[in-house]
Structures are given as C-alpha cells and as structure tokens.
Simulated assay, not measured.
Amino acid sequence: MAGSERIFLQAIRRYCAGHGIAVEIRSGGWLIAMRRGATCRFAFGYDIGLNSAIAHRLANDKSAAGEALSLAQVPCVPHHLFLNPSLGVHVAGTAWHDAMLALLAQNPQGVVVKPNEGTSGRAVFKVTNRNELDRAMTEVFSSSLGLVIAPYVEIEDEVRVILLEGRPMIVYRKERPSVTGDGVHTLHELATAAGHGRQLRELEARETKNVLAKGERRILNWRHNLDAGAEPVLMDDGEVRAACVKLAADAASAIGITFASIDVVRVDGAWRVLEINSGVMMEALAKLHPELVHATYDAALDRVFGED
C-alpha cells in the first residue's frame, strides 16, 4: 500500500478486506467500486455513498446550505451567492458587482470571499476594500462558476463535528498556530523557531518585526482550516461539546444528511454553523488518531452494506 495513499482509501481497503468485499479503484483513486456478490456500492472523492443526492448538493453548496439552515431557524453564518458573469447576463444578472460592493460597505470589518463549492480553505480571501474585492473576485471566478461572500467575523473557536445518523463520531477543535512572546524575540523569530514560518505570509511584514511582550499569545492565521496549519484537538465531554453536537445535529436534520462533517463557530459567545461537508475528509486527524478515523469509516461502511 503506497504511503501517500489517502486515509479514506486505506480505510475502505481495510474494511473490505475484512468483510469479503472486492475493491476496484478507478480515476486515480477517486472512484472506488466495492462489490460483494451481486451488490456493488460506490465511493467518490470523500463521499462514501450514504447521503441522498439532494442532501449532498445542499451540503456542497455554501449558499444553498445557508438558506436551508435559515429556513429551519438553525443559526448560521450567511453566504451570499454570486454567479460567474461568464455565464451571461441572463444567469448572473447585471448588478452583481454593485451588490458585492454593497455587502462590503455593510461590513466595515471586512468580508470573506470564497468559492461557493469547495473545501480545505483554498481560494479563500479576507477583503477590506474594493481593490482586494476585485482581486479576490477575479481569482475565484477564474476557476469557479460561483462565489459566496460572507461577513468577516472574529471566530473565537471553531469545532468540527462528524456525525453519522445524528450520532457524534468525532468532535474536535481546530487550534490555529500561535506563538507566545518572551519580551526578547520578534514575531518572525518566534514563529520560525516554532516551525510556523510559512504562516508569516498571512501577516504584514512590519508586524512580524515586532517584539512580543512576555506571555503575549499571538495567533498567526485568521483561518481555522487544517490545511492552513490548524491542529485538530479532540474535545472532552462537557457543556461546550454538547452544545456543538446539538447544533450540528440540528443542521444535519435540516438538510436531511446522514454522514457529514459540520463546522460550527463561536462568535460573540454564540455558536452558529459555518459549513456542512458531505464528503468526510479526515486526513489530518488520522495522523494523530488513526484508530478513531478507521472506526468512524468502519461504522459508515457498516451502514452502506447493511451491517449491524
């Protein structure tokens, strides 16, 4: 088995080997056929095949998911949809740019621009002025049919809840990279020594030259994405975990999704849903807790093949 093979694929191979299920890999590992007798089930990308088509589409569409959650009165971060103008005025309309500028004006703290579909924090931009908005818009529209604009909010905490049929399988915080000052070294020196040098590109150059006061903690990235350097930290039982699970379960119920990872954030002391992901990706978590990841995929595959 190749060391670079995705944990998702490794988990499927291992499960199928133990249950007499033949596995056939196509499309460079992104399409997986699982056969047992006359039964054939497919996994695609990180979607294991438990979710309905409409639930999958709602989850993968940030704007539609937000609308569905609002209809169900589930607290969420709003995502305003803008279609690529290359689709034509009959689809994208003519006032889309003015509407973008209006949203920016309504949110003086800034907005976040990102593809309407997609994960891992790619092509996600924090925007505070028109020039930044136009650059972000151009970048996202170069590879996406639609983008969403959400108000920038100071996220105090972000938690991912992985649910299977409403049951929390894994709950973890996304802990962003940070350094603590010693009153001697600059932010650049502290981050480099801690192995967070690549995070400095998120900051202005003059800021990295500042000496941090002793005991001062500085978070290096405004994004909580695991691909952006955040670390998954499992949560213990308690009120906070219970609140996150309850909110995630309400969100899953609102769109009728069976197996999903749901990101919830705390803003001004209140929890709300940020995103729902139909494809359950646990590559970063598997480096720390492989047994937990395999157990979760095993439980999902039991449902796929009708096991108890």
Score class of each variant (00 low, 15 high):
15 Y>H: 09
16 C>T: 11
20 G>S: 09
21 I>Q: 01
23 V>K: 02
26 R>G: 06
26 R>L: 13
30 W>K: 11
31 L>C: 04
32 I>A: 00
34 M>L: 14
34 M>A: 13
37 G>V: 10
38 A>L: 12
40 C>M: 14
44 F>C: 09
46 Y>H: 13
47 D>R: 12
52 S>W: 01
53 A>G: 03
54 I>S: 15
55 A>D: 03
55 A>R: 04
57 R>K: 11
60 N>M: 09
62 K>T: 06
65 A>E: 00
66 G>K: 04
68 A>C: 10
70 S>V: 08
70 S>M: 13
72 A>S: 13
72 A>V: 06
74 V>L: 03
76 C>H: 15
79 H>K: 14
81 L>S: 01
83 L>M: 10
86 S>H: 11
89 V>I: 10
89 V>Y: 05
91 V>S: 02
93 G>F: 05
95 A>N: 14
95 A>R: 13
98 D>H: 12
100 M>W: 00
100 M>C: 15
101 L>G: 04
102 A>L: 11
102 A>I: 00
103 L>E: 07
103 L>A: 06
103 L>D: 01
103 L>G: 06
104 L>T: 06
108 P>H: 10
110 G>V: 08
111 V>P: 03
114 K>E: 04
116 N>V: 07
119 T>S: 14
119 T>P: 02
119 T>H: 10
120 S>E: 12
122 R>E: 10
123 A>E: 13
124 V>A: 01
125 F>L: 01
129 N>T: 06
132 E>R: 08
133 L>S: 04
138 T>K: 10
140 V>R: 03
141 F>I: 07
142 S>P: 01
145 L>G: 15
148 V>K: 01
148 V>T: 06
